[in-house]
Design a protein around this nucleic acid. Sequence first.
DNA 1: GGTTCAGTCAAACGTTCGTTTAATTCAAAC
DNA 2: GTTTGAATTAAACGAACGTTTGACTGAACC
Lengths: 207, 207
Amino acid sequence: MASPDTRTQLLDAAERLFAERGYRGTSVRAITDLAGANLAAVAYHFGSKAELLAAVARRVIEPINAAQCAGLDRLLARTPDPPVAELVAAFVGPMYDEMRAGDEGGARTSRLIVTILSDPAEEVRSWTGPAEDAVRDRYLEAFTRALPDLPPQELWFRIRGILAVTAVDRVEVHNRLAGLPPVAGEAAKQWAITFLAAAMSAPPTGT
Amino acid sequence: MASPDTRTQLLDAAERLFAERGYRGTSVRAITDLAGANLAAVAYHFGSKAELLAAVARRVIEPINAAQCAGLDRLLARTPDPPVAELVAAFVGPMYDEMRAGDEGGARTSRLIVTILSDPAEEVRSWTGPAEDAVRDRYLEAFTRALPDLPPQELWFRIRGILAVTAVDRVEVHNRLAGLPPVAGEAAKQWAITFLAAAMSAPPTGT
DNA sequence: GGTTCAGTCAAACGTTCGTTTAATTCAAAC
DNA sequence: GTTTGAATTAAACGAACGTTTGACTGAACC
């Protein structure tokens, strides 16, 4: 292990560059240059560029997932049937809280997640483990009990709506044309909870 | 002009492949192969790969924009201050209606839009013209009048929420884990309007 | 002092990419 | 019948890519 840990610096550089330019738009050479490492370091430490992305994704997603899980535990300890608004807050909150460490108000992490989720390449999306699925399934069940009249398909549509709003939140295209400054972290979190709690609580569409 | 119009077949092939594999994941060779054209045809008809993408994007977006504009005209002809739910329907509806022509229930077009909007490369996002901006500005103004108590920044946050939900709607990652069949076009449209009308109508977050 | 081994390094590998070139086709215009 | 010019073609171009190789480093261990 070198002094500033080449492996960690590769992860940091890759996280930033993948977020800024996408997976395919980032060359291994650009990563190693930014990390101050040799070109072969990626292959040595991670095996391949795709496995480096998987490592980056895990490092970003894991704390969010853990916080989502803990938040649901806390809710369920209080009442077996938490209201919709609190479920939304417990699910959405960590996506804003956990991504605030290090980068510009979470904008970079947000972009990274969008990049990963929207990239059509199989290798880019193959990092998910059973942990991510388990958390989502637990929330799905909790929402099902909180919204008993909502058909399963429409509930699933709304869950994806939550993911869409939280992930796409800060993509630059949508910000470009507003003369407004970028959204502050804490305010965006509250806005998202307000927006999504109202959306989730809407009555079923019917027919 | 050849019999089946090489130019159009290039547009069709590029639209499908850009949607399936992204801009960077699609080679010019793959496009010309699928179109049954020569490798040099892209350079001859469009100048470059980036300009071909711009042409594809324009062909997809223009009818949606026109329908959004017409829908708002229709609303404003009836009343100067349309309610939120009708504004949402007029804005969201065309994104589902206009993309139903040709591809699998609009899933491919939806993917194409996500691919374009979420790609960090500058060239991928430089196709927008003043028409797109004008429509968005008109809706922004209408929403501002319909929601006078909402601060501009939070309103803008919600507008982006609309775009996020409608665009990311059918990205495969989010569908993968549900045991449910893909969402049918008309049902998804109604679900989206229900979901987003409730979200837009939420009271301001406050503080 | 010699051995070991995780780590780093410069250099090269073969492939794929977007674009360019120059020759060719072929129906329409004269 | 010749000319014209848009359209197509095969072939090549140089650049950039992810990965591999084999030599080298230097502290740890015996």
